[in-house]
Amino acid sequence: MTEETAENPLREAIAGAIAEKDVLLFMKGTPEAPMCGFSARTVAALEAHQAAFFAVDVLPDPRIRQELSAISNWPTIPQLFVKGELVGGCDIITEMADTGELAELLGVEKPAEAAPDPAAPVQAPPLQIDNLSGE
């Protein structure tokens, strides 16, 4: 790492989004077109809860993932943040969806059926972190 945090606009943008968005998912691909099974399962769990969430696709720029993992101390994608706190990746989110903890955390009703509804609407457009790489 040669860049200082203070001069790392990408890291600041990521930290800012985590602080600002109540429910924020960093994933591979978009909620409409996930590019990885783990991201897809996490999106499905959120959508089954009809929870509004923002998503960031980490694929367009490898530095997003690098900076995110440096902030969160979590090596893999997806990563779900609720109210600024890392909740976990796919394993943890699907476990919490099953136990009802996810519904409690999101302040929604636990969905009746565990199976995700593929037709569930995506309630927020993917958040773009663009033009912030400081180049």
Partner: peptide
């Protein structure tokens, strides 16, 4: 917590995950 359990395991494979 769930997250700390995973971190305990992740540490074993630090640098290899992903």
């Amino acid at each position: 917590s769930r997250i700390d359990r995973h971190r305990l395991v992740n540490e074993i494979f630090a640098g290899e995950l992903g």
